[in-house]
Design a binder for these strands. Structure first.
Lengths: 227, 227
DNA sequence: AGTATAATAGGAGATATCTCATATTTTGGA
DNA sequence: TCCAAAATATGAGATATCTCCTATTATACT
């Protein structure tokens, strides 16, 4: 992880969008953290020291279940918060957060900004709105996703996690995330290869027919409620 | 729907829990609305005129999908909000809300309380916390639910929607909610009857072995993350 | 380096679930 | 009152998905 220093930092913090979200006076605490793909932003169980706001990139959220299996819970992209729940109520068990691509975040040290943020009406309003959108997005997704076979959900997952045309998630994690057996995931992946959508290259897969994958994936959301 | 008048009203509004959520000065706008089972609290698409806070009972949230099918989205119980998203941002398309049992709500006319609530730090904090819990609950549920066959999810659904030991949801709606085909739902229901868990009585089902149903249902949440 | 553990890979049979087809009954208006 | 639409029921065959099994690599730890 790399922290960016003053001049460049000012540049980001003065963005209009950020003015509309974060209160005056928070600039002095703002840092900018850059993470490489694969780097851990937070280790599961650790009290996160920062409230992050994603400026660019994408991260994965992990959680270890009681049976010891690690489950990929979801992805977060630009304009998402990390550590928002812990900011609201410290007792929450934090999850593992890993950068899935090169990711740049605004980072506020929790101890310094908690008071300020939790007493700022604009920030709280934004946070509530952010969460309400997330809830709607989740429930729309959930109700739809049950209705489609793995083929469609896998297409979406591949597009979500691909980098530069290369898909290389661990099958064990993908299976957990998609809620299917490892065996069946392999089966459908093999079908994709057979149909020429993917090309296997060692342990990775090269996306050969992105447009078809997109078509299969978007059919899930053709009837989705919210964007 | 019945509105409750002054003396009784005061009684509810002075509850400690409510003091901790809603700002001073809101009492003058507070109303108490009672709904009978089956009564509609909000008609889909109507701008809800009230922000509701459920004091007791249970409601169902409906949504009409683009294909015209009506889907049961979820249930809300005590301490839940109705109309919170619309309070935050009016443009949201409201859903249909129907009382599933006798339900009593605190009701605040949106036009009168929006300003007050959206500028109250305590309320916003509570709302954000409420939403963050909902998010966690949803995602825990989603990740778990995919992993279990209909048998378990149906057991949970029956317990959730049963009243006085009688289950009488429409099969079409239940199938939508559970994300399975109508045919399969009937199949599993028939199994339940055959095993003596339910007893068919005309168009209703009588719960015969609630403890077994509970066991099947809770097995879903044995490894759940949050309560 | 060597060994245990996790990840990859694929076969085969069992289940869960879907689709389609068809008949009957309810229900909500014209 | 009657009709069209929706809900209930059930059968049969097709698919999706699971479980169990067995091998073969990677990976991590000693």
């Amino acid at each position: 992880m790399k922290k960016i220093m003053t001049e460049t930092r000012q540049h980001f913090i003065e963005e209009d969008t950020l003015q509309a979200i974060f209160p005056k006076g928070i600039e002095q605490f703002a840092e900018i953290h850059d993470f490489e793909a694969g780097e851990f932003i937070n280790v599961e169980g650790d009290e996160p020291a920062y409230l992050y706001y994603i400026l660019s990139g994408k991260v994965k959220v992990y959680f270890t279940q009681s049976n010891g299996k690690v489950a990929l819970l979801h992805f977060l992209g630009t304009h998402s918060f990390i550590g928002d729940m812990e900011l609201l109520e410290a007792r929450y068990y934090s999850k593992g957060i890993q950068a899935s691509q090169k990711t740049r975040c605004l980072a506020f040290p929790t101890v310094h900004v908690r008071e300020l943020l939790l007493n700022d009406v604009t920030f709280l309003r934004h946070l509530a709105l952010y969460m309400s959108k997330k809830i709607m997005h989740n429930s729309a997704k959930m109700s739809q996703s049950l209705a489609y076979p793995l083929e469609n959900r896998l297409a979406e997952f591949i597009l979500m996690s691909e980098n530069n045309g290369i898909y290389k998630e661990k099958h064990t994690e993908a299976a957990e995330f998609l809620g299917v057996s490892y065996r069946h995931l392999l089966h459908v992946l093999a079908q994709f290869v057979e149909r020429g959508l993917l090309q296997k290259d060692g342990r990775c897969y090269i996306l050969r027919e992105k447009s078809i994958l997109e078509e299969m994936a978007t059919s899930i959301f053709a009837t989705a409620i919210y964007d």
